[in-house]
Design a protein around this nucleic acid. Structure first.
Lengths: 206, 206, 206, 206
DNA sequence: CATGAATGAGGGTTCATTCAT
DNA sequence: AATGAATGAACCCTCATTCAT
């Protein structure tokens, strides 16, 4: 898309940047942010250390770039699903499926993100987490608005749609982590069904 | 219990140990495991660095001790609640309340745990996480067995009680984090009610 | 000898001191002076660290005491042999045998001494080495005086007896180390014979 | 030989390495391996500590490199002398002279080696000492083979040439240390003559 | 006298970052 | 633009020594 208008030089640069980010992700998720050195990244990516610093002004910057790129991708995908014109229940189901796919494809990134950013771990939080939070808040509001439609159409009970969204997130996260940690014992299909069921019908007998 | 029979010397030692753990927790949750130095901990706790190392053979050991102690406390509290002889719904409600209290009292530890241990962050995971996982697995099974009772008594629908437990965990976590991050906007009472409602009745209109 | 006039208290003290020295020697020769800590010595000797410091004012002092004790013992034994009233050749033979026995019995100490003291290793040299040197010089002079008798009696060629002593020392050391490093390949008997032969007759054919 | 084809960069690197080794030797022989810190070496050599670690992966490695380099040099020189085509007695004399020169030029290294490596001092022994031993064993065998020639040509008595070599080593070491410790009292010339004399003719009157 | 908890200087080592080439 | 040698602050940890009990 954007690349087509770039000179060869610039296309190369972008390729290099991408290579560095991919390598960094690999290493970070193998060993954790603090246990990977810039030299290690440079070496594995087959660049000189100086070149790495031409692209990212320091280690934190590299980490942020990595996370933001992934966050934006996730955001794009999920917002896409939530924007499709379908009946609410189908949208929710599609959303769960899409989220599951993202989880499976980006296990490394997710683990890294939870490991490094969610705590008061370090000041990256200040910058990075906020940006990602902003995206996530936007997304939750979008999800809430979808659910609100459902409420308006009487598909759902009269509830605060924001809280419904929070609840849905909690359920999907719990089951998807469950699945990812032990896919054999907790197969994808079963999990998805239970998420839908619990979300829609709760657990009461009646 | 045990403390009463200790000599003054040993009671002092225990106090010192406790002080070090408290200080370490403070610092770790302010800045993250990797951004806190042993010197820093020693200084803030007002001990010499050597003294710190007399109590914990290295930094990782200190961290593990910290986490295990907290995990065991949580475990004890929650298992206690789940063991009370009450009708299932009351137990669940008590459990949510107890968990909320633990969250509120131990926000720092929780953040630290999620930030440092859950990812592939470092090899502490190998030892520590397993021990904590074992506790957590035990707990989930206990919760499932409570829920199973509910199923047997026809309070709940016929579902896999393990998945019910997973779902309940997901919901409570989501709402409690929500509450802790912005207690004014998402007050405790509202959250607890929504957890109970969503868990029990789901979101469907009927 | 001296001990009989000491009170029980003082005899105990001496026994403790001896125990500490023995333990220290064990550890030093297992691992080298710098790789053994005072705590380690105290623990293995079953004393508190403070008690160790009551007996030796610091680590260097302990080391010096150890070495001086051994040096004096060696000195006593070898000087004894050199003082016996026998013909020169017998004295020399006895001396070689006695030295061999000392080597064998004190391999650990010797290794330690060569390892730690002979180089400009550390300032122990200043104090300790000088004292030991003094003993050794005395001994060499005694050996020279025995050899001088041999010269006077025309048993030996007309040579500087001091240099004869140096030469004898060189030969015995070389062969005894040889023996100690690989007793099977270079058995004691063979070595002693060769020392005597080379010292007395040299290597020329005629 | 190899150096001439190196780039300026690489020649500089080699010079730096050499400078570090020289400085390390200076310090080690002034104070002993364990009493010299890497910081001290770096400072005296006028490099940053990190640079030192670029060249030697740790302190032990630096020490080993130092010793091996010297050992190889000695080996080369002495083997060279022993390989010259001369009558046996001349070769022996040349050998003594060459060894004396090496002793004089490398007093620091020798002292260090005897002080740090020969004892059970530390585990460098494991790796380093073995390598040096191998060189030394090769050398002793070479010396023995020279002496064997002497035996075959009836220059020497019928003796085990290996033991002759050991004896020669013992004598040279004793007298050369003697000379180095007090060159005024025990001048070079006198020592060399006595070595030769004692080795060849022994001390008996006849 | 004996004890052992406490001390803190100092050691080995790593690694993010810079800058001359 | 790319390189990689050089930097040095900062880290984790050890251990000789002291001193209150």
């Amino acid at each position: 898309m954007q690349e087509e208008k770039l000179s060869r030089r610039e296309r190369e640069k972008l390729r290099h940047r991408r290579q560095m980010l991919i390598t960094a992700l690999e290493l970070f998720s193998e060993k954790g942010y603090h246990n990977v050195s810039m030299h290690e990244i440079a070496k594995r990516a087959e660049f000189a250390i100086g070149t790495l610093y031409k692209f990212f002004k320091n280690k934190e910057d590299l980490y942020k770039a990595l996370m933001m790129e992934k966050a934006e991708e996730h955001h794009r995908v999920l917002m896409g699903v939530l924007s499709e014109e379908n009946d609410v229940l189908t949208v929710i189901e599609d959303y769960i499926a899409a989220k599951a796919r993202l989880f499976a494809d980006n296990l490394a990134t997710l683990r890294l993100y939870f490991a490094e950013t969610r705590g008061a771990s370090f000041n990256i939080k200040a910058g990075l987490d906020q940006d990602i939070r902003k995206l996530y808040d936007k997304f939750i509001l979008r999800l809430a608005s979808v659910l609100e439609t459902g409420v308006r159409r009487k598909v759902f009970r009269k509830m605060d749609p924001y809280y419904m969204a929070v609840g849905l997130e909690g359920l999907t996260n719990a089951f998807l982590f469950c699945w990812l940690e032990d896919p054999e014992q907790h197969p994808y299909g079963a999990n998805v069904l239970v998420i839908r069921d619990m979300f829609l019908k709760g657990v009461l007998a009646k």
